[in-house]
Each structure stands twice: as structure tokens, then as C-alpha cells.
């Protein structure tokens, strides 16, 4: 059916080598081989963003990336957001501002917001909404997600001064 290929890449700072069929999607490798089930599958068609991960410094929908495309890549998933000092400011922000309900979109939201705040560290509300347009949420109506991202932006800006 599908040839096997060995792929080496770094996920959340840890080096992994996996042998996968060439057609295997990155999201399945992360979830089923590396047991990183924080990354979710919501649509299989790049619309919902629940599977968003950071790949070589860009937000990608891992349901439409082949694992073989991640050869030698640096991948960040939600499991890699918190540091040794505790939660990432975005994780704090989502909790403080009630930016989540069922939690299914949350990992993708967080990982996308992580990249977005590096692209634009001090965004206004409209910029946040546009920057997050690739991630769907059915529970929150986004209003508190916007606040959560502002919370993190302010905290990160304050921290870097």
C-alpha cells in the first residue's frame, strides 16, 4: 500500500525517529506513535485548526501535513508550551479569561496564538481575530479567547521590558 520511511524530527525539544508509511499524516504520528494526544482532529480538511502545531516556526494544520514532510523539523505541540517555571502566559490567559469550555479546540488555539504573538507581539482586537481565523471554536464565541491572547501579550510585553 504505502512504503515505509524513517523520519527524524524534534518534538517539544525531544528528538524522535519513527518509521512510518509515507502516506501517514503528521497528526497521526504525533497522536498515535508519540502519544501526544493534545493535538486533536476536528475536520481532516484544514478548516478547523484543532490539529494546529508549530512546524519550523510556522503554524500548520497537522491533519494535512505528511510526516515525511517533517524530516529534520522542529515541532511544537501544546504539550511543549509550559516551561520549567510553569504555564505559558497563553495557558494562564485562557484560564484567567475563561477562553475555553469543552477544551477540544484549545490546544490548536494555544499553539496558533503562540506563533501569532511572535508575529505580532502587541496586537489589537481586530488583529487577533484575523490572526486566529484559522481556528474554529464552537463553545466560546471567541470573545474570551481574544481577551486571553491580549492577557498573554500584555504579560509577555511586561516580562520582556
Amino acid at each position: 500500500m504505502s512504503e515505509q520511511q524513517t523520519v527524524g524530527f524534534t518534538v517539544n525539544g525531544e528528538r524522535h525517529t519513527v518509521s512510518v508509511p509515507t502516506r501517514e499524516l503528521l497528526v497521526h504520528t504525533l497522536r498515535e506513535r508519540l502519544h501526544l494526544t493534545g493535538t486533536h482532529i476536528g475536520c481532516d480538511s484544514s478548516h478547523c485548526g484543532a490539529c494546529t502545531v508549530d512546524l519550523n516556526g510556522r503554524s500548520v494544520k497537522s491533519c494535512t501535513v505528511l510526516t515525511v514532510q517533517a524530516q529534520n523539523a522542529e515541532v511544537l505541540t501544546v504539550e511543549g508550551l509550559a516551561g520549567p517555571d510553569g504555564l505559558h502566559p497563553l495557558q494562564e490567559g485562557f484560564r484567567e479569561e475563561h477562553g475555553l469550555q469543552c477544551g477540544f479546540c484549545t490546544p490548536g488555539m494555544l499553539v496558533r496564538a503562540y506563533r501569532f504573538l511572535q508575529e505580532n507581539p502587541d496586537p489589537d482586537e481586530d488583529q487577533i481575530r484575523t490572526g486566529m481565523a484559522g481556528n474554529l471554536c464552537r463553545c466560546t464565541g471567541y470573545q474570551n479567547i481574544v481577551k486571553a491572547i491580549r492577557y498573554a501579550a500584555e504579560k509577555q510585553t511586561a516580562g520582556s521590558v
Binding site: 501526544l36 494526544t37 493534545g38 505541540t77 501544546v78 508550551l81 504555564l87 495557558q91 477544551g103 484549545t106
Partner: peptide
């Protein structure tokens, strides 16, 4: 949920 530790059916 914010740390990717939810436990959904999949």
C-alpha cells in the same frame, strides 16, 4: 485542557 491532557474518546 490547556496542557493537552484532556481525555477524549479518540
Amino acid at each position: 485542557f490547556i496542557q493537552g491532557k484532556g481525555n477524549y474518546v479518540d
